[in-house]
Design a protein around this nucleic acid. Sequence first.
DNA 1: CAGTTGACCGAAA
DNA 2: TTTTCGGCCAACT
Length: 97
Amino acid sequence: MDDFAYLILEVVNEIPKGKVSSYGDIAKIAGYPKNARKVGKVLSNAEFFGDYPCHRVIHSDGTLVMGWDEQESLLLEEGVKLKPNKKVDMKLYKWKP
DNA sequence: CAGTTGACCGAAA
DNA sequence: TTTTCGGCCAACT
């Protein structure tokens, strides 16, 4: 567990139910605006560190993360509605601190 | 030690 | 609108 991962997980943990955010935004909030890619890596292992709502983190465009199978179901379970094109409605669900 | 890769992003074509 | 490209940085080969 390094400091970077800790910051990321803190931010992710602050996302309220029914809201989502993007990797880039989270990286920015954490203080590492360029490390968006690493955020993905950390979140992939986030479960190992503890229970975090990493499924609430999506692409900046609102599309679900590529290469991830459970995210859609998890979001629906949280109450986040998806458009027919499998995209999250950022207008309503984009989380801004 | 050098080259790829990745749950990415934003701008440009 | 979709595709391409460059940039960023840690981990892996």
